[in-house]
Every structure is written in structure tokens, then in C-alpha cells.
Design a protein around this nucleic acid. Structure first.
Lengths: 174, 174
DNA sequence: ATCCACATGTAAGAAGTTACATGATTCG
DNA sequence: CGAATCATGTAACTTCTTACATGTGGAT
């Protein structure tokens, strides 16, 4: 799964600009895929050159022009090839977890600060997903993904809350 | 969090070879950090040159020599700097989730195959974590990390099982 | 016979990050 | 008056992946 595959996936239904694509990722695909402008814009330009997508320039007043990209037949083919390819194992870089693993090299206050910070982050992500759930135009498969994502996120939040309240219980030093 | 930081973390307590480090990652840090030999060996060589670690060559018979790396004072300093630095947001590349999101472009059989495959993978990872739990020599903070990891993994497995059984229920096409 | 575990490495290329550069508008 | 949003891009750098190269010993 490269940036290209995901971009083709989101352009399949709706033409979008690089800016739109980043927002779409952040709103609908948090914790599944991350991409910065430094990746998105060069990728889009390369994909256009190679014929996977076509550019349409929307002139806007007061704002910079928008480059709307449409998927081509070649792009749809490439996307199908991705969909048929074997699933790649997930890769995660989870700094917070590493801190916990190496936690004995930090202070108790530090660890508690980390736990609360992560809880805040996870709660925010969970709320984001709950907002997506309200969207009426999701297909069955998208709802499955959302459901799994919610279960995982909810599980993490609940366990973190338990851990924090245990650590903060007045008797935890006995 | 770079490869270097994690390597310093595991070498902090025990001297290890590149081969050992990879096995340690796979056993104790699955789903938190992934590194291949192509990353580990060059990183170790660079770190030695820069004085973060020291090499001790263990001559073995019948097997290639083992390069045992020890952390230095400079290495411990660098590790402390990492521990005190702000936590980086996690990055995930989760191909399976993407397939679900884009699932309408695949067949129902395909989707079910994906779900079952992922369930098998997650179950395997969960078993791995449960084995780590049996280890007697884990510190409190490591147990916290494990507990959170188990909760997340368990939540995912349970929800996936529910999803699969719902899809396979004889009446799901009504 | 063949494959797996042990063990280390290199080289080429793909991919991604960060910082920089530009510039109008809107909101507080 | 400053910050955020909209909007696109480049350049330098870091990092990671993949494939190759080598070789022994043990298990099936």
C-alpha cells in the first residue's frame, strides 16, 4: 500500500485537490494512513505525468487556483491491481508505547503525564471517528472499517482510563 | 523516535547483537516498532562510529562470529535525551483497514477472505503478547505497556469475530 | 536433498519528512 | 495586528525497503 494506492482510492469516487485529499485523510482515515503535503503534491504530479489522473484547474477568486484531479481508466486499472494484491502487514511506530516499555528510565510523574496526554489524544481521535459515524453516505464496507476502528479505539481509551485511575488511587503506594 | 532510540533502549540493560535485537523486537515489541536487518546493521555500525555503543566480538564455533554491542556513557546520555523529548504522534500504515474502506471495489468473498486472514493474524499477535505476559522479569512499566497492548489487541479480535459471524449468519442476505 | 536457523553485511532505489517560499482573506 | 485557513509547490535530507552476497550446521 503506497500513497498512490490510497490516493487512487479516494479519487475513484470524487475528484479532489491535494489539499482536499489531505483533509479527507485526516477526517476519514485517521490512524490508518498519514501523509504530508511534501508527499502528496509530488505524488500527484508524478501520477499525472504517468497518466493515472488528469488535472482540471478551477480558477478561484481571492484564493489560489485549485487543481482538481480526476482518475483515468489507467488509474482505475492500477487501483484494481492494488485491490487484488496481497494485503501488506501493518506497520506501526508507536512512540507512546515505547515510552511505557522504557518507563523505568523516567519518573513516576513523567509516566503519569504521558498516560494522561495519550488518553487525551485517543479520546480526541475517538470523537473524530464518532463524528464520521454520523455521516449518512457510508457504504457497508466503510461502516465495517469504522466499527472495527471504533472498537479498537474504545478499548484503548477504557483501559487507559482504568490504568490512570488505579495509579491515582490514594492507596496505590501501599 | 528513531531506530537509534529503540536500540539504545534495549541495549541499556543487556548487550546484544543485531540479530538478537531483531528477535527482541519481534518478541517483545510487536506492533510497536518494525525494523529489518537492512536498517539494524547499518544503524549499529554508525552508532559505534559515533560512540554510542561499543562492539565486543564473540568468537563462535560452527556459527558466524557474534558482534555484541554494549551501550556507552554517551549512549545513555542520548537515550535520556530521547526519554525527555516530547512524544511523537504514532504513525500507522494499516493496509487491511484500507481494503475495508475501499471494500466496495472488491467482491463479498474477497472481503470475507480479508477479514478471516486478519483475524488469524491478530490472534497470532495476541498469543505472542500472552506469552510475553508469562515472563517473570518484567518491570511495572513494561507490564502497563503489555496490559494496554493486550486490551487493544483483544478488543480488535473480539470485534472481528463478531463481524465475521454476522456476515456468515445464514440470514444475512435477507 | 532441502530448508531453516544462525549471523553479518552492502547497494540501489523508493519513500517520507522538514523547512522553505509565496500570497490573499478572514476572524478575533 | 497576528493567526489561521486556503492553496501549491521545491529542495535537501533522512530513512527504510528490497534484493543480493556469503557460509555453516542441524533437522526432516
Amino acid at each position: 500500500m503506497k500513497g498512490q494506492d490510497v490516493i487512487l482510492g479516494v479519487l475513484h469516487d470524487t475528484p479532489m485537490s491535494g489539499y482536499d485529499i489531505k483533509q479527507h485523510f485526516e477526517k476519514y482515515l485517521p490512524d490508518m494512513f498519514v501523509a504530508s503535503f511534501g508527499t502528496i503534491y509530488p505524488t500527484l504530479n508524478r501520477m499525472e505525468k504517468e497518466g493515472y489522473i488528469e488535472k482540471e484547474i478551477i480558477v478561484q477568486e481571492g484564493k489560489p487556483n485549485k487543481h482538481l484531479y480526476h482518475i483515468t481508466a489507467k488509474g482505475k486499472e492500477a487501483f484494481q491491481a492494488y485491490i487484488q494484491s496481497p494485503i501488506e502487514p501493518k506497520t506501526i511506530k508507536y512512540d507512546f508505547m515505547m515510552r511505557l516499555v522504557f518507563g523505568k528510565h523516567a519518573s513516576e510523574e513523567q509516566r503519569l503525564k504521558w498516560l494522561k496526554q495519550e488518553l487525551a489524544q485517543l479520546t480526541e481521535d475517538l470523537d473524530k471517528l464518532k463524528n464520521v459515524e454520523q455521516e449518512p453516505c457510508l457504504c457497508a464496507s466503510e461502516r465495517l472499517a469504522l466499527r472495527l476502528g471504533l472498537a479498537i479505539q474504545q478499548g484503548a481509551v477504557t483501559e487507559l482510563e482504568n490504568i490512570i485511575s488505579e495509579l491515582e488511587a490514594p492507596d496505590h503506594k501501599n
